[in-house]
Computed example of a mutant assay.
Amino acid sequence: MAELSILELGRVREGFTRTDALNEARRLAQHAESWGYKRFWVAEHHNMPTVTTAATSLVISHIAAGTKTLRVGAGGIMLPNHAPYVIAEQFGTLEALYPGRIDLGLGRAPGTDQLTLRALRVHPEESERFPQDVVELQMWLGPVKEGQRIEAVPGSNSNVPLWILGSSLFGAHLAAELSLPYGFASHFAPQALDEALAVYRSRFKPNEKMAKPYALIGANIIAADTDEEARYLATSQQMSFANLVRGERKLTQPPIDDIDTYWSPMEKARAAAMLEVAIIGSRDTVKRGIDKLLARTNADEIMVVSDMYDPEKRLHSFEIIAEVMGAKNLSHA
């Protein structure tokens, strides 16, 4: 059975604060640890009022400090926004604080709009250097070589595990070439999922650190005690995607009875395309959906997005998912 993990954006709910969102993320991670989830990643996004994980390394530390065994990391750091040397220092520090628990997933998208890129002092063409920047980052995180005059401290000799993340064939080719694990963003850009996995696996170059490919996929999974309740809870996420299509900047909204009263047919179609890899329902429905997705992709790991408004319902969703996936160390086992 595939491993099970969580992707967290620290979403701010209507009527609540950013502090609430960050503390709810930490609380979720603590429960996830007891339910057998393998890793808990947060993603770098900028200028998004509903997302609180822009200072990604700080949020990772907040989560890791509240857990003991869960792997915590970036899903991902948008490397073109940063000097690889600085990221090596940040994640080397995290590794020093939480040894053996830190992951570093890397993306080449900016994680924001072009106007915000200017505020970040980043030129759009920086993404063209992504492969070279990944290799440079590996160097800073690796052993210090004789005569090396610049060292990332902390960072050097930490060997923080790197992942290549993406939603196109570019990342699949790069992960295969560099012999790194690969995460595909099928939770919001699923169109190239099957082709990207095929490219990654067929072109993967084994080495002494990684003998075979390892593929992680994102999936939107919302579970509840009944199919009807799950569909109701899922409307919060569906409204968020409709707002994204509209270019509206709203916080996470409470669920509604009929989502078709909220979005237009065009918005529904565009949101549905982004939410193609979505499983919504009761335990049995979720189990069937996960089995079908794994049969299709043969993924080594599923990284779950389960966005909803009520934090208690959200915790229950993640617990149900752990149950149907047979995760170890369940709190009631």
Rank of each mutant, 00 (worst) to 15 (best):
E3C: 00
I6A: 06
L7A: 09
F16T: 15
R18F: 07
T19H: 13
A21I: 09
E24G: 01
R26K: 15
R27C: 01
R27K: 15
Q30C: 10
A32S: 13
S34H: 12
W35A: 10
Y37R: 07
R39P: 02
R39H: 14
V42D: 10
H45W: 11
M48N: 13
T50V: 13
V51K: 08
A55W: 11
S57W: 13
V59I: 15
I60G: 05
I63S: 09
I63W: 13
T69L: 09
V72C: 15
A74W: 08
A74Y: 10
N81V: 06
Y85H: 11
A88T: 11
E89Q: 15
Q90I: 03
A96G: 07
L97A: 14
G100K: 06
L106K: 04
G107T: 05
G111Q: 08
T112F: 05
D113R: 10
Q114P: 00
V122Y: 01
E125P: 00
E128M: 10
R129A: 09
F130P: 00
D133W: 06
V135L: 14
Q138I: 01
Q138A: 07
M139L: 06
M139T: 14
G142P: 04
G142C: 08
P143D: 15
P143R: 10
Q148H: 01
Q148K: 04
E151F: 01
E151H: 13
A152R: 07
P154N: 07
N157A: 12
N157T: 05
N159K: 13
P161H: 08
L162R: 08
W163M: 06
I164M: 02
I164F: 02
S167K: 02
S168P: 00
L169A: 12
A172T: 05
H173M: 02
E177K: 14
L178A: 02
L178E: 06
S179Q: 02
A185Q: 08
H187N: 13
Q191E: 10
A198G: 01
A198I: 03
V199P: 05
Y200G: 02
R203L: 11
F204S: 04
P213I: 10
Y214L: 02
Y214P: 01
A219R: 07
I221T: 05
T226P: 01
E228N: 01
E228P: 00
R231T: 03
R231H: 14
Y232C: 04
Y232G: 04
L233T: 04
L233F: 12
Q238I: 14
M239Q: 14
F241W: 14
R249S: 12
K250F: 10
P254Q: 09
P254V: 11
P255D: 08
D257T: 06
I259F: 14
D260S: 12
Y262G: 00
S264D: 00
E267W: 04
K268F: 07
M274E: 11
I279N: 10
G281S: 04
G281N: 05
D284I: 07
K287L: 13
K287P: 00
K287M: 11
R288Q: 15
G289F: 11
D291P: 05
R296Y: 03
T297G: 11
N298A: 15
E301Y: 10
M308R: 04
D310I: 09
E312K: 12
R314Y: 09
H316R: 14
S317D: 06
I320D: 01
I321H: 06
V324L: 05
G326Q: 03
A333S: 12
